[in-house]
């Protein structure tokens, strides 16, 4: 989270005006939107294909990451804007993914075949403490 801060600021001595970032053209925005639409269509298609569960999960997750990155990189200008913004945002995402994955793993969410025991509730010996 503080990786941003350890970076010496580029302009400590002489503040410069906000850096100019070349925003992409409107045509580029439309291209991105078309790509997003195509990926969304593909997602829905994959949903209706009877793939193995693992394959389906992987494909769907990859496509979601692609869409997420396209929007963040182009529409939110992270690709063109200061690295600092990118780092702050990625810190948030990475932290969220890490800690919540650990939480879910500790519940065994991704580990057990939960269809077998759908209603098992992890007993908590100290729930009443």
């Amino acid at each position: 989270m503080t990786d941003t801060a350890t970076q010496p600021s580029p302009s400590d001595e002489h503040p410069v005006p906000a850096e100019e970032h070349a925003h992409p053209s409107e045509w580029r925005y439309i291209q991105i939107a078309i790509a997003l639409a195509i990926v969304t269509a593909a997602e829905v298609t994959v949903y209706y294909l009877s793939l193995a569960k693992l394959a389906m999960v992987v494909i769907l997750l990859v496509m979601a990451v692609v869409k997420f990155s396209l929007v963040a990189a182009f529409f939110m200008h992270l690709r063109f804007d200061s690295r600092l913004f990118r780092r702050v945002f990625i810190t948030g995402i990475a932290l969220a993914i890490t800690v919540y994955t650990i939480v879910l793993l500790s519940f065994g969410v991704f580990l057990t075949n939960r269809h077998v025991t759908p209603h098992v509730n992890v007993p908590s010996p100290t729930a009443s403490q």
């Binding site: 400590d12 005006p17 913004f85 995402i93």
Partner: peptide, 19 residues
Amino acid sequence: STGLSNVKLAVWAFLASEC
């Protein structure tokens, strides 16, 4: 001091928090 807009940095920090 970074040449970046205060409000924009604030919005990004807020969005990181929303994650």
